[in-house]
Amino acid sequence: MQITLNNIVPTPLKDTLLKRKSDVWNTTQNFSSNDWIKIKAPSGTGKTTLIHILYKLRFDFDGSLLWNNISTNQINETALATIRQEKLSIIFQDLKLFPNLTARENIELKRVLPKPYYDASAIDLMAEKLGVTHILHQRTGLCSYGEQQRIAIIRALIQPFELLLMDEPFSHLDKENTSIAATLIAEECIRRNAGFVLTDLDDDNHFNYSKQLSL
């Protein structure tokens, strides 16, 4: 999986973004399965916008976005679903869990949407590593943000992928939990030969980044 950005500038942020230099906006940039990329940016500079553009959730931008050298405009719903099921996984900043489903069901949904990459037992293994086994049966609407974030991480890792998008994935976790989660993410990426794009506010050493960019 490779994502190519060609002079992308989000329309709402156009005026401010064109005034300053950026490693991503209005340039050409490639994110591929070989890269572990960290994008650092302060609040309000379009981190979430970028992740959403990369995931084909937003279309309000100038420039062009390519997935595996195909313009995302040409990718139909079925192909889009297949890519999201098999090649491109994501951890949203706002987590996007179904509040009425239990934690396990939220993860299970993503496991069975594609042809399953892992057995159901993988959920328990990952939950145990991240210390959320006790809330698996709970509706996520009742879980704390920290717990929800770990569920969202497991959900992203339960499916097959070649590239993982992460939007401030540790924002609700303490240092120790962050490090455990990062280790799990790294393991899963290595296991799949997958790359990732991670956005965050500050510098960190959670991963062995291959590229660090600023927005």
Binding site: L57, E77, T78, A81, T82, I83, R84, Q85, K96, F98, L109, K110, L113, P114, Q159
Partner: peptide
């Protein structure tokens, strides 16, 4: 909203 989220998560229209 639920359907939108399902599609976001990769549920295909066919499913």
């Amino acid at each position: 909203n639920e359907i939108q989220l399902l599609i976001t998560l990769g549920a295909s229209p066919k499913q």
